[in-house]
């Protein structure tokens, strides 16, 4: 996907980095708590992804703008207060838009504060780059996170309830795999996705014998 080994990263590379090369869910395995807790359906997953992206964007912009003002000693505390402010905004926003969604996501909206992706971006990227670049990077990361959540949520909804976005897929005879929407299902589905990505990465150097590995990788 992205061209490796380039010295000067273009904005496009910066953007793609979060989606593919450093995908927060599948590659860095960060922000697991919300990723597993709320992804029982595709809609919940998208809402959570959008909320996180908003916080990510807002905090990246503000941290980047204030990067020369914040004293080094108290930077982490400052970042957390900035992030908490944006999370409070999102919390009230979701409650105002859809009470149903608000109740489904529950305390996990507020728990975005301690999502390590956001603090990680603020510390590792936004505090060192100009606002434009920080926002692009945050947008990529947010989208990557949303894609990850959607990949989890849609698989769990399809197997666990036989639906996607509430639309039945398999007809009335389908017996839902209830375990998929229960906590163990979350672990299994993410584990299966990681297996798939492991296989993908391992396959590249040794492209000769992928056939027998495929079978193992697709087991959930």
């Amino acid at each position: 996907m992205a061209i490796p080994g380039q010295k000067q990263l273009t904005s496009m590379d910066e953007f793609l980095e979060g989606i593919w090369k450093q995908n927060p869910v599948f590659v860095m395995v960060l922000g697991l708590c919300p990723a597993l807790a709320v992804t029982v359906s595709a809609v919940n997953a998208l809402a959570m992804g959008a909320a996180t992206t908003f916080v990510l964007l807002g905090s990246a912009l503000l941290v980047s703008l204030m990067r020369n003002v914040i004293p080094k000693e108290v930077r982490i505390a400052t970042y957390i207060v900035i992030i908490a402010t944006f999370v409070t905004i999102v919390d009230y926003l979701i409650a105002a838009i859809s009470l149903e969604l608000y109740e489904a996501l529950g305390a996990f909206i507020q728990l975005i504060v301690v999502n390590c992706i956001i603090l990680g971006r603020a510390e590792a990227h936004a505090s060192k780059h100009a606002p434009g670049r920080a926002v692009i990077n945050a947008l990529g990361m947010g989208l990557g996170f949303t894609i990850g959540l959607f990949a989890l949520g849609s698989v769990r909804e399809i197997f666990g309830a036989g639906t996607l976005f509430g639309v039945p897929l398999f007809g009335p005879d389908f017996q839902p795999w209830v375990v998929m929407v229960l906590p163990p299902g979350g672990f299994f589905v993410l584990g299966a996705w990681l297996l798939l990505f492991n296989w993908w990465r391992n396959r590249k150097p040794a492209a000769s014998e992928p056939a027998n590995v495929v079978r193992e990788a697709s087991h959930g």
Binding site: G185, F187, F188, G191, L194, L195, N198, W199, E216
Partner: peptide, 15 residues
């Protein structure tokens, strides 16, 4: 096996 090592295995165990 190589493919299963790391976080994927931990997640399966946790499951």
């Amino acid at each position: 096996p190589n493919v299963v090592q790391g976080t994927a295995l931990s997640l399966m165990l946790a499951g």
